[in-house]
Write a protein that binds this DNA or RNA. Structure first.
Lengths: 340, 340
DNA sequence: GGCGGAAGCCAAAGCGCTTTGGATTTCTTT
DNA sequence: AAAGAAATCCAAAGCGCTTTGGCTTCCGCC
């Protein structure tokens, strides 16, 4: 069933039918009713390719997905996607993933914009002075950054959580508990979120006249294995920390394993706070010692990004609007006063 | 830069340029060379919407993604996607995710097919007599099922791993080690893979005259928490198993925690074999006791599905071709002879 | 030398939609 | 009752590509 058939069936022109369907005012309410009715009854759906060709609107939001042997997509992505999908579904938006070699991201962005394949895109895992953001700004397509970049000479729209405050808060709590040697096991520090977290932690330390020596800061990809290694390294050092803040629940699995392997225990020997993105399949309260966390649902962020993207597509949202979500600090059994 | 401009610039008709670019024979080699050259030099890329409108080919592969509060997408998906993306990238295929309410999947499939939004789709997490498969067969769009369904009255193309053999093998090994009380912590048994695994395990048991009593079989969503609960239930039973086979590494995290909580140990009290889909961020060798596993890379499966989908799109692969991958059985420290 | 057939190229017709620029009808207004 | 305004509706022109159905050339051959 296409427009032509439908309009013929209604003895109306394609113009009128199209207008009726798209809510243009030049058509009487009665006609509109009739048209919409018939459309629904016959399950008419405008052909997206044709519509896109005519309007340039795609009804899709895009994501340029780096792939390749060396690129590990992490489980965060799928949670984010769930949220995005939740919203997108209710607004008839599809999602296009454009797989790209890491060194061809720019080309891909240019392509999908030039071809009008998508109406908007989102950018994840931004780095400082992220070139993708500059490019998108330049290309003029609606976009939102999930996270933040830094050091760009213009404002941009983003959604981020307050990583700095979260880790500052967490660290402050540890300090109040008497910890002076706090370590940070962070994600890859080429990413802004990691930088922010480090900053927050350092601020809290500094506020109490404490420092974060290099050997107490580890920045690595967030895997269980890396968490394990990092922790061993930390705890086998002369100046071992009595508290660890960890950027990911996955890493924390490794952290806990290392602590146990070393014959130590949580929180008696080491206090632990981790960041929790809220996965249904791995919960901090279910760790052998329930984990204190800074918590923020990455899924909710996905939904919100979709919502804002939709708003931008339809022109409801414009300009460089930044949104920073506060992060919960959830206290559970994994923290205690510093050992004497 | 569009076809018109390019052809004008070459003083050729759009027809000829189009043909030259698409490898049709009615154009001299010299002209073709010239055209291709100019196209490359000016970075000409045919507009996909237009091409799609004209040909009906989309250059995309689709996935209907169930979403909603109650739907938990799991980390397997992202690994599979990575693999798919790896291949898709090298063949200029994009990926469309169509988010759908669980009860509207059929509508969505019909829509994307009717609109020719995608050239092919893949189906994941199939259940027995899966209606989606029947629908796709009926609609006549190229597709591949990742996994298997059962009880359909026609053949269909799929890629699956040999879950039955894998779990049979694993169980046989446990039996050889003297275990007679083997338990299975399985995924949701509405899905075929879970059924196959159960079948494999039962076969191995039966071959030795053993049975799988109901209290030793647990089928639940594959989360850490469920793994924990299941294990407690199993081990607190009078007839507690001495060996557990577990369908997922995530669950196994919970399994190990439960065993420890109960003051038992692996493998002295309980032997453990889990299925490993090969995640970069969680490796079986890094469990406190290295885990024996049945192993098959879900990422590789993703790549292969993409490859076959591409082959189907271009007509190189046809008919109901099934592909079943053998599964490695990797022995590590988590299994030992049954306790006396 | 003329004819048949390749080889090489082109004009134009879609694909299904939106949108511009009227045309027609109906309703007000004076 | 005539004229202007408003309300409806329509024909046709794109959007950028592929593809059908020719139309020229250019050879080779009898």
């Amino acid at each position: 069933m296409n427009l032509k058939q439908l309009s013929h069936m209604l003895s109306l022109s394609q113009t009128t039918v199209s207008r009726a369907l798209n809510g243009y005012p030049e058509v009487s309410e009665e006609t509109r009713r009739r048209v919409m009715d018939a459309a629904k009854r016959h399950g008419y759906r405008p052909n997206p390719s044709a519509r896109r060709l005519a309007t340039g609107k795609a009804g899709m939001i895009g994501y340029v997905m780096p792939t390749g042997a060396s690129v590990d997509m992490d489980p965060h992505f799928v949670e984010f996607l769930s949220g995005l999908g939740d919203y997108a579904r209710s607004h008839d938006l599809d999602l296009v993933l454009s797989p790209t070699a890491a060194d061809e991201e720019e080309t891909t962005y240019r392509r999908i914009v030039a071809n009008k394949q998508v109406d908007a895109v989102y950018v994840s895992s931004p780095r400082p002075a992220d070139r993708r953001v500059a490019l998108l700004e330049h290309l003029g397509i609606p976009y939102i950054v999930h996270g933040r970049t830094e050091g760009l000479d213009f404002e941009y729209p983003f959604l981020d959580i307050d990583n700095e405050a979260a880790f500052q808060e967490a660290t402050r709590l540890l300090i109040q508990l008497g910890h002076t040697k706090v370590a940070l096991i962070n994600g890859d520090d080429s990413q802004t979120f990691a930088i922010h977290r480090e900053r927050g932690l350092k601020k809290a330390l500094a506020a109490s006249g404490l420092k974060l020596p290099a050997h107490r800061l580890i920045s690595v990809a967030m895997t269980e294995e890396n968490g394990y290694r990092a922790t061993r390294r930390l705890l086998e050092h002369d100046e071992a920390p009595t508290a660890i803040v960890c950027s990911s629940l996955f890493m924390t699995l490794g952290v806990v394993r290392a602590i146990r392997d070393l014959g130590l225990s949580v929180p008696a020997d080491v206090s632990l706070i981790a960041h929790d993105d809220v996965f249904p399949w791995l919960k901090p309260e279910n760790f052998s010692v329930p984990l204190s966390t800074t918590r923020s649902s990455i899924r909710a962020a996905g939904a919100r990004v979709a919502e804002r993207l939709a708003a931008r597509i339809s022109g409801l949202e414009t300009g460089p609007r930044g949104e920073i979500w506060p992060v919960d600090l959830v206290v559970r059994g994994s923290i205690a006063g510093a050992p004497a």
